[in-house]
Amino acid sequence: MKLMISPLGTVYCVYSESIDLATLGRLAISRGSYVEPNAAGQWLVDLSPVNGPQLGPFAQRSAALEFETNWLEQHWLPSDTSP
């Protein structure tokens, strides 16, 4: 889990239960994507909530979730947290 911390103390991350994020302060959680099965039983990642692409299909949900997290960390999570 990547945590990006701005100089003002705001923490940005792709949500995970790796740590209890509430210990860092007040949370503001928003949806970044949808991971859903298609009619063939394969998995699609829809990143439209963050103006991203659709990824897949993936044979396994775990693979879809991994690609989802990687895409969000590379393209959505701020890399420059300057004020």
Rank of each mutant, 00 (worst) to 15 (best):
M1S: 14
M1G: 13
K2N: 04
K2I: 02
K2L: 07
M4R: 12
I5D: 00
I5Q: 05
S6A: 04
P7D: 14
L8I: 04
L8W: 02
G9N: 03
G9I: 06
V11G: 00
V11D: 01
V11I: 12
V11P: 01
V11E: 00
Y12E: 03
Y12C: 02
Y12K: 02
C13M: 02
V14Q: 01
V14F: 01
V14D: 01
Y15Q: 11
Y15G: 12
E17P: 05
S18P: 03
I19A: 08
L21C: 04
L21N: 08
L21I: 03
L21F: 10
L21W: 08
L21H: 14
A22I: 02
A22L: 06
A22M: 02
A22G: 05
T23P: 01
T23D: 14
T23E: 13
L24W: 07
L24Q: 11
L24I: 14
G25F: 09
L27H: 09
L27W: 05
A28D: 13
I29E: 11
S30W: 06
S30Q: 14
R31L: 08
R31G: 06
G32R: 01
G32W: 06
G32A: 14
G32Q: 06
G32L: 02
G32N: 04
S33R: 05
S33L: 05
S33F: 03
Y34H: 10
V35Y: 12
V35T: 13
V35F: 06
V35A: 03
E36Y: 13
N38R: 03
N38A: 03
A40R: 12
G41E: 07
G41L: 12
Q42H: 14
Q42N: 12
W43A: 05
W43H: 04
W43K: 07
W43D: 04
L44T: 10
L44Y: 07
L44P: 10
L44V: 07
V45E: 01
V45H: 01
D46R: 04
L47F: 01
L47D: 03
L47T: 08
S48C: 03
S48V: 02
P49S: 05
V50G: 01
V50P: 03
V50K: 05
N51K: 10
N51M: 13
G52A: 05
G52K: 03
P53K: 08
P53T: 08
Q54W: 02
G56N: 08
P57Q: 11
F58D: 09
F58K: 10
F58I: 07
F58P: 14
A59T: 15
Q60K: 14
R61C: 15
S62D: 12
S62I: 15
S62L: 13
S62Y: 11
A63R: 11
A63H: 11
A63F: 09
A64L: 04
L65Q: 11
E66L: 15
E66K: 15
F67Y: 13
F67T: 09
T69I: 02
T69Q: 13
N70I: 06
W71E: 05
W71R: 07
W71G: 04
W71V: 07
Q74D: 15
H75I: 04
H75Y: 13
H75D: 09
H75M: 10
H75V: 01
W76I: 05
L77D: 07
L77G: 03
L77M: 04
L77K: 05
L77V: 00
S79V: 06
S79K: 15
D80A: 11
T81W: 02
S82T: 14
S82D: 09
S82W: 09
P83G: 13
P83A: 11
P83F: 07
